[in-house]
Design a protein around this nucleic acid. Structure first.
Length: 674
RNA sequence: GCCGCCUUAGCUCAGUCGGCCAGAGCGGCUCACUCGUAAUGAGCAGGUCGUCGGUUCGAUUCCGACAGGCGGCUCCA
């Protein structure tokens, strides 16, 4: 149908908009699509500014058409859809006051001040109303307000918008799309026939030409949100929605959401009998069941081995300490509210450990240290407890009790850059051994709040050292101003999982404050006393969180080397059990976790059970196999290899596990022949 | 911590507009079946309807507090 359209050779084709004509006309003239998923919805001018199709430059302007199915195009669709939502809300609830309504990842939201919170029924009614608005093809029309006074007069019934008008100089961000760019504009929704103004909103734009250009949307949930993101401000009711350039894309998005739900580690943790959160223990305190315990142990064991090989020393420290230690470190009183309240006895306040570093510093300080010992790398799987607010506790990824794979590296100033580089390489290498391979880095630097300790020079130097190490890694580096720890800047490694979600994994921090506070010293070659630099580093972040991330990454189908049960023998009939027990014995001798299913379920049922339990290798044996001294493989994906000689089967499974292969074995990937 | 929603058997969920013995599927246990690649059949057990308090002749059902969960906000050394 669209075959006559010329192929797009230039990735960013330009269209020239003649002076005094609209961008839309030029786009049409150029033969670019006006409807469908690749419809041009706005253009980008020479300054990079997005403009409405109704934009009319006063001089000829070369612009870049922006299609609906691009990140910018989708943002415009979503933002316009937010306006439609707001119009629907004010039709249905005339007393509702408007907050802000920006596009966000995969969708949009709009905040409202209403007398009572929205209900799910409200959402359904609003969706219906929005569909009518979209169908009526209202035109989005931009209007420049003459002055701040004019704006205030127009917005006299919208207290939050008024506030934005007064704040406009410092709210020109992507989040607040209402105002910006030096002038105040309103987008009116006009009736396509009469041109009457139906609704309007303070907004910097740009917008779609008409509401009909919103091809597919859905309202997804309601929540409360603080006005302008501050706990001090009133809470508004936020409605979230999603909008896409086509119904197919909306469906695909819904499918991604459903897939994420299926992978939810909290759900899989129960289904696969890995861990639970007993109410009796309290919120955020997990227990690991035997199968979860195996995965956890394998994760830890491999990490332990790699750390041993890389020159780390293993230490152990207690879970509780007198409060003085955390005063020395500076954690108290800054972070008192995120630590559990103290236990008072014998005239002392004892705190549950919220971080391991102070205790490691004490180990460093326990005797005189020589430069010959540096870098000294102390490592511990250290359990910590943090009083996370009740509303943020979330499965294994945000728990109140968890285990950090924590290490502190004490080195000289000169050693720090090299140590950081090799540390980062080590971290990325180890993470990829667990099957995560898509990384980017975030550099968290000092902010201007009072929580950061230490001098400007020290911060600048530490930040630069970290930045350099990050740049040397060749990975994408995203700045995170104000995100540093109070004692120093940090790099965090963000990993993307199998369905493209990012998780913060490792953090690496440079710390020049703790050495000072703890009076850490070593004797240098010239006999002088020097202060070491401390590098803090958690690789998994926390074992629990990494466990949760891996569970979701693999959708519960753990690599064979991590799987709680690696092999299950399934006899066709009872008389074949003996044969499988022999195979199991051989595997068990090679430390393979193997079971033979002797239950009186039918063979088909056993296959189903162990498939849903995501066992990587199922070994079936019937008369033919017994006779041939063989077994038949069935894999998670349903593929099979029949009649594999027992010796070869044992060898093959052992090799697969020892190779720490992270993909699921299948008839295609497993090679029977040598 | 804040806002909203939720909590019935091990799990997933019906149900009670306030009233005799609260149901189903899966799971568990028992028995029969011995089977060639995702659910064999029959039977049995299992619930103080999250906890505490209030209203009521009577509460699993209505109200409140608390705990736990879910979705957000805020926070995240």
């Amino acid at each position: 149908m669209s075959q006559s359209r010329p192929p797009v050779a230039d990735p960013t084709p330009r269209v020239v908009v003649p002076a005094g004509t609209t961008a839309g006309a030029a786009v049409r003239e150029a033969g670019l699509p006006g409807k469908g998923a690749d419809a041009v919805v706005v253009v980008r001018d020479a300054e990079g500014q997005l403009r409405d199709l109704s934009w009319t430059p006063s001089a000829d302007a070369a612009v870049e058409p922006v299609a609906a199915n691009t990140p910018d195009g989708r943002a415009v669709i979503r933002h316009s859809c937010a306006h439609v939502l707001a119009q629907a809300v004010q039709q249905q609830f005339p007393e509702a006051k408007l907050g802000i309504g920006p596009p966000v990842r995969d969708g949009f939201y709009y905040d409202f001040d209403v007398e009572r919170p929205f209900t799910p029924e409200d959402l359904r009614a609003l969706e219906k109303r929005m569909k009518q608005i979209i169908k009526s093809s209202q035109r989005f029309s931009r209007r420049v307000l003459d002055s701040v006074e004019a704006a205030k007069a127009e917005l006299k019934d919208e207290p939050f918008k008024l506030e934005l008008v007064d704040l406009k100089s410092d709210v020109d961000t992507d989040e607040v799309m209402e105002v910006g760019g030096g002038e105040l504009t309103v987008y009116d929704n006009l009736d396509p026939r009469s041109g009457d103004r139906i609704w309007g909103d303070l907004c910097r734009g740009p917008h779609l030409p008409t509401t009909k250009h919103i091809p597919a949307f859905a309202l997804t949930r309601v929540a409360a949100a603080y006005w302008r993101g501050s706990e001090q401000n009133p809470q508004l009711q936020r409605i979230y929605g999603t909008a896409w350039e086509s119904q197919e894309e909306l469906d695909a998005y819904s499918e991604r959401v459903a897939e994420a739900e299926r992978r939810d580690h909290r759900k899989l943790g129960a289904e696969l009998d890995l861990f639970s959160f007993p109410d009796e223990l309290g919120s955020g305190l997990p227990v690991f069941h035997p199968k979860g315990g195996i995965i956890r142990r394998e994760m830890e064991n491999y990490s332990r081995r790699r750390h041993e090989e890389s020159g780390y020393d293993f230490v152990n420290t207690p879970h509780i300490t007198k409060g003085g230690l955390f005063h020395t470190s500076g954690h108290l009183p800054y972070y008192a509210e995120t630590m559990f309240p103290p236990l008072s006895f014998e005239g002392e306040d004892y705190y549950l450990k919220a971080m391991n570093c102070p205790m490691h510093h004490l180990i460093f300080r326990s005797r005189g240290r020589s430069y010959r010992e540096l870098p000294l790398r102390l490592f511990e799987f250290g359990a910590v407890y943090r009083y996370e607010k009740s509303g943020v506790v979330h499965g294994l990824t945000r728990a109140r009790g968890f285990t950090m794979d924590d290490s502190h590296i004490y080195c000289t100033q000169e050693q720090a850059p090299g140590e950081l580089r090799s540390l980062l390489a080590f971290v990325l290498d180890l993470l990829s051994d667990y099957g995560l391979s898509d990384f980017y880095l975030e550099l968290s630097t000092r902010g201007d709040t009072g929580k950061f300790i230490g001098s400007d020079e020290e911060w600048a130097e530490a930040t630069e050292t970290l930045r350099q190490a990050a740049v040397d890694s060749g990975l994408e580096l995203v700045p995170d101003p104000g995100g540093a720890a109070y004692y120093g800047p940090k790099i965090s490694v963000q990993a993307k999982d199998a369905i493209g979600r990012s998780w913060q994994m490792s953090t690496i921090q440079v710390d020049f404050n703790h050495p000072k506070r703890f009076g850490l010293q070593y004797t240098a070659a010239d006999g002088s006393r020097q202060q070491p630099v401390v590098l803090h580093r958690a690789l998994f972040g926390s074992i629990e969180r990494f466990f949760g991330v891996l569970t979701e990454h693999y959708a519960g189908a753990f690599p064979a080397w991590l799987a709680p049960v690696q092999v299950v023998g399934i006899p066709i009939a009872d008389e074949h059990v003996e044969h499988l027990e022999q195979v199991a014995k051989a595997l068990r001798e090679r430390r393979v976790r193997v079971e033979v299913d002797t239950s009186d379920d039918r063979m088909q049922k056993k296959i189903r059970n162990h498939t849903t339990q995501k066992v990587p290798f199922m070994l079936l044996a019937g008369g033919k196999d017994v006779e041939a001294g063989a077994v038949s493989f069935r894999f998670r994906d349903g593929s099979q290899i029949n009649g594999v000689p027992v010796d070869r089967a044992v060898e093959l499974i052992t090799e697969w596990i020892a190779g720490r292969e992270n993909t699921s074995p299948s008839a295609e990937s497993v090679r029977v022949e040598h």
